[in-house]
């Protein structure tokens, strides 16, 4: 199976921030979600893959092309959308569409028209009159209509109203239909990632905390409520990431759940009342607070 991208030993230093020793790859046809707090390094990672920033060390391969040596070939099949990209205020959206079409032969005018309708955008309107949400949707439309093999989307749903967010997720779901197309997207909204991603990658302080397939990742975590006076010592129970106690109620966030673990807890006198799956947001916050591996 070919890879959409592969990073090996990638480091990038800025004055106040460094992305360190990143080893990460994604098979073709997958959707990967990047989760991290502001300043974690998500955008730097996306910029390196998009050929907009140069790694200090390590190797970067995008769609089988070495970056930056073969970046022209890579970029022809690459879509990159970030809020930082300025569109020309005095020009219409139609002008932008024609501009992108003149550069990329893969531009699909029928799909573009479909996206315009679904995103509720007017091609003849000048960008100066666009709202924030409309600008974001316009930028996504300009990328989607090229049908690039790899889409790099930096916070594609941030700042969108619920209806616009839904439209964007629907367009993203269209991409899933084609097994040769891949998406890497970052989001503060972990719900979007939980819904759409095959693989989840946690980025924190410039390093990767975890990168795993979503189903087994979600499956490993549980929030366990037990009654009794037993409170685990976290050093002796590496499976447990967080413990809170209030009277006879103890809440545990477990990072490596198994039936055997519950049995061992019961032999310590814990009365298990529930063991429920956790959502991605809860898992992420617990991981960051626990200050370690997920």
């Amino acid at each position: 199976m070919s890879t959409a991208f592969a990073l090996s030993g990638v480091t990038k230093r800025y004055e106040n921030f460094a992305l360190r020793d990143i080893d990460l790859s994604m098979p073709e046809g997958q959707v990967m979600g990047l989760v991290g707090v502001n300043g974690a390094g998500k955008t730097t990672l996306l910029r390196i893959l998009g050929g907009l920033a140069l790694a200090d060390t390590g190797t970067v391969e995008v769609l089988g092309h070495d970056m930056p040596a073969q970046q022209v070939a890579a970029k022809s099949d690459l879509g990159f959308a970030t809020e930082d990209m300025r569109l020309f205020k005095t020009r219409t959206l139609r002008w932008h569409m024609d501009f992108v079409r003149s550069i990329y032969p893969g531009w699909d005018e029928v799909y573009a028209a479909d996206l315009l309708r679904r995103f509720d955008l007017r091609a003849e309107q000048r960008l100066a009159g666009f709202s924030h949400g409309q600008r974001v949707k316009a930028l996504l439309m300009l990328n989607f209509a090229r049908r690039p093999k790899l889409l790099l989307l930096d916070e594609p749903t941030t700042g969108l109203d619920p209806v616009a967010r839904d439209e964007v997720l629907e367009a993203l779901a269209d991409v899933l239909r084609d097994e040769a197309r891949s998406v890497l997207f970052s989001s503060h909204n972990t719900k979007d990632i939980e819904q759409m991603a095959d693989t989840i990658t946690f980025v924190h302080n410039g390093t990767l905390l975890a990168s795993r397939d979503k189903e087994s990742f979600l499956d490993d975590w549980r929030r366990v409520i037990c009654h009794g006076s037993w409170v685990p010592d976290k050093a002796a129970w590496p499976e447990i990431a967080a413990v809170r106690q209030n009277g006879s109620i103890v809440e545990l966030k477990v990072r490596q759940f198994s039936a055997g673990l519950l049995e061992r807890m019961q032999t310590q006198g814990a009365e298990i009342r529930s063991a429920d799956p956790m959502n991605l947001e809860d898992i992420f916050v617990t991981t960051v607070r626990a200050g370690g591996a997920a």
Binding site: L169, R177, Q195, E215
Partner: peptide, 17 residues
């Protein structure tokens, strides 16, 4: 799997499972 994932807007791996 892809068709159902795309139409129901969930990830491919979830439908696989």
């Amino acid at each position: 799997i892809r068709e159902l994932a795309s139409a129901s807007r969930v990830s491919v791996i979830t439908v696989k499972r």
